[in-house]
Design a protein around this nucleic acid. Structure first.
Length: 446
RNA sequence: GUGGCCGUAGCUCAGUUGGUUAGAGCGCCAGGUUGUGGCCCUGGAGGUCGGGGGUUCAAGUCCCCUCGGUCACCCCA
C-alpha cells in the first residue's frame, strides 16, 4: 500500500526536544560547560560519523555496542562509516590525528546512537555530556574527573545518586585476575545463568556484572580485583580513593563493576541514581583507558574520561523534583493596535538595546494582544494605540508586579523599561538550580 | 533481538451486550467589554477513532497483519 503522506514522526527510539523542555537542555549544557571549562577542559566538536574501525578497535569487537548496536553505513564512495555509539573513541581519534600538546583536556556534548529496543531512559539516539583528559596517568587526575561529575550532579540539586568505583587493573595484572575468576567459576558452572553458562570462559569478568541470582551467587565470594592488583595499580587506586576522601566525594567500592567497553584500565566508575528504576539507573560512567590511544594508532598515552546521559540525568532530576524548568521570559511585550509598524520598529530597537522583547502579529485586537502578552510571561506590556502614536509616546503597563501603567516618550522607553522590570525578570536563570552562569540583564546592556 | 500491556481532538481521557450526525475537560480562536491581560459567560475551529485487511445488515467497539508507544529481559547513558 502506497504511503501518500510523509510519516511525520521521529524514528523509533529518537525524540524531539522542544520548548520549553529544551530550555532545560540549554541550561544543563551551559552549566556543564562552565564547570568543566573552569577545570581546563575545552570544547571538542568532532564528526558524528567515523570510520567503523575507530569503534571496532577502540571499544572492542566483542562488546555488545560494537557487535550488535552500531549504526553502520556505507557512503557513496564505499567508505564504511558508523554513527558514534559513544563519545570517547571519536575524541581520542581526533587526538591521535592532531596530537595537541599534553596534557590535553576536552569536553563534548553529542548525540550517541545505539540500535537497541527503546524503553524508559534508553533511546536509539540519546545525548551525552562528557570529558576526556589525555596525557597523564596521574591518579590525581582521576580524582579531578570523578569530582567534576559529582560536583556537576550536585550543582543541579541532585542528592540521590552514588559513585561506584573499581579498578580494572592493567596488562600486568588483569590476565592473572581473569584466570583466578575463571577458576572460581569453573567450580560453580552449574549455578550460572543460561546466558553465561556457555560463555563464561571467553570473558569471565563479565559474569561479575550479571545481575541474575545464579551468577550473583556464583560470584559472591569470587576473588576481588582490588585484592589482586599489581603493585602499580594498587598504588594508583589507593591514591584515587585517598583523593576522593580528601576532596569529599562520597563513593562506594564496587567489586563487581565491570564496564562494557574493552578499553578501560585501572580506575572505572559509574554514577547511579537511586530514584530511577534499577534497569536504567546509570546516569554516567567512565574510567581510565591507558591503552586506547595506542589502539587507535597513536603513541602510548594514558587517558581518562566520563560520559553522562542527558536524558537519564533529567529523569533523575525529575524523580527528585530538582532542576526545574524556568524558561526565560520576555522583558517586554509590544502591543500595537495601529497596524504593527510601531511594534516592528520598537521591538527591534529594544532588542538591540539588550532586552528580550516579544510582540504579536497579524493585527489582532488589543485584548488578544494583551492576552498573548500575559501568557508570554513578559514583565511589562508596551502599548501603542492611536493616542500614543499621535503623542509619540508608549504606555508602559506592568503585567506581573503591581503599579499603575504610565505613558513615556518614545525615546525614553528603554530607560522606563529598566526601572519597570522586576529583579526576578532581570536575572536570567536565577531560579534554575544554579547550574549555569547567571547572565544579568544589566550586564547585557553595557 | 524475545515477551507483556497500550494506541479516540494539540494535551488528559470518556465512549454502555458491535447499532443513527464520535463526546468532555484543558488548550487554541472569537465575542461579551468599538483602548487594556489574568476571573467569568457565550460561541467557534479542530478527529484518516495509529495504518491496512477481514467478519457483519452495521466496527471506535470483534479477528488478523502492520506501524508506533510503553514496560521487562539483554546491555548500556
Amino acid at each position: 500500500m502506497p504511503d501518500e503522506t510523509v510519516a511525520a514522526r521521529a524514528p523509533t527510539g529518537t525524540h524531539d526536544v522542544l520548548w520549553p523542555e529544551s530550555a532545560r537542555w540549554e541550561h544543563l549544557v551551559a552549566g556543564f560547560a562552565a564547570r568543566v571549562e573552569a577545570a581546563g577542559f575545552g570544547l571538542a566538536v568532532t564528526p558524528l560519523i567515523e570510520d567503523v574501525r575507530v569503534f571496532r578497535r577502540g571499544i572492542g569487537e566483542g562488546s555488545d555496542v560494537v557487535g550488535k548496536e552500531m549504526y553502520e553505513l556505507e557512503d557513496r564512495g564505499g567508505r564504511r562509516l558508523a554513527l558514534r555509539p559513544e563519545g570517547t573513541a571519536p575524541v581520542v581519534r581526533a587526538f591521535v590525528q592532531h596530537r595537541p600538546p599534553l596534557p590535553w583536556k576536552a569536553w563534548y556534548v553529542t548525540p550517541a546512537f545505539r540500535y537497541e529496543r527503546p524503553q524508559a531512559g534508553r533511546y536509539r539516539q540519546h545525548h551525552q555530556l562528557g570529558v576526556e583528559a589525555l596525557g597523564t596517568g596521574d591518579p590525581d587526575l582521576d580524582v579531578e574527573v570523578i569530582a567534576l561529575a559529582d560536583g556537576f550532579f550536585r550543582s543541579l540539586g541532585l542528592v540521590g545518586f552514588e559513585a561506584r568505583i573499581n579498578s580494572m587493573g592493567d596488562a600486568a595484572c588483569r590476565p592473572g585476575y581473569a584466570a583466578l575468576v575463571a577458576a572460581h567459576l569453573r567450580a560453580r558452572q552449574d549455578q550460572l545463568c543460561p546466558e553465561h553458562a556457555g560463555r563464561w570462559e571467553a570473558n569471565p569478568l563479565r559474569v561479575l556484572d550479571c545481575k541474575k541470582p545464579g551468577c550473583v551467587a556464583a560470584t559472591e565470594d569470587a576473588p576481588r580485583f582490588l585484592d589482586h592488583l599489581c603493585d602499580a595499580c594498587a598504588a594508583h587506586f589507593a591514591r584515587v580513593t585517598d583523593g576522593l576522601r580528601s576532596v569529599g566525594v562520597p563513593y562506594r567500592l564496587a567489586h563487581r563493576l565491570v564496564r562494557g567497553f574493552d578499553y578501560y584500565t585501572r580506575t572505572t566508575f559509574e554514577f547511579s541514581a537511586e530514584h530511577l528504576d534499577a534497569a536504567q539507573n546509570g546516569i554516567g560512567g567512565g574510567g581510565r583507558y591507558d591503552g586506547l590511544v595506542e589502539q587507535l594508532g597513536g603513541p602510548a598515552t594514558p587517558g581518562i574520561g566520563f560520559g553522562i546521559g542527558v536524558e537519564r540525568l533529567l529523569l533523575a532530576c525529575d524523580a527528585e523534583g530538582v532542576f526545574p524548568v524556568d524558561p526565560p521570559r520576555p522583558h517586554a511585550f509590544v502591543v500595537d493596535v495601529t497596524g504593527g509598524a510601531e511594534a516592528r520598529d520598537l521591538s527591534i530597537a529594544l532588542r538591540g538595546a539588550g532586552f528580550r522583547v516579544e510582540r504579536a502579529f497579524d493585527g489582532r485586537s488589543m485584548k488578544a494582544q494583551l492576552k498573548a502578552a500575559d501568557r508570554s510571561g513578559a514583565a511589562v506590556a508596551l502599548i501603542v494605540g492611536p493616542d500614543e502614536l499621535a503623542a509619540g509616546t508608549v504606555t508602559v503597563r506592568p503585567l506581573r508586579a503591581g503599579g499603575d501603567q504610565r505613558q513615556v516618550a518614545r525615546d525614553q522607553v528603554a530607560e522606563a523599561l529598566r526601572s519597570a522590570i522586576p529583579a526576578a525578570h532581570a536575572v536570567d536563570g536565577s531560579r534554575r538550580g544554579g547550574a549555569g552562569e547567571e547572565r544579568h540583564h544589566d550586564e547585557e546592556l553595557t
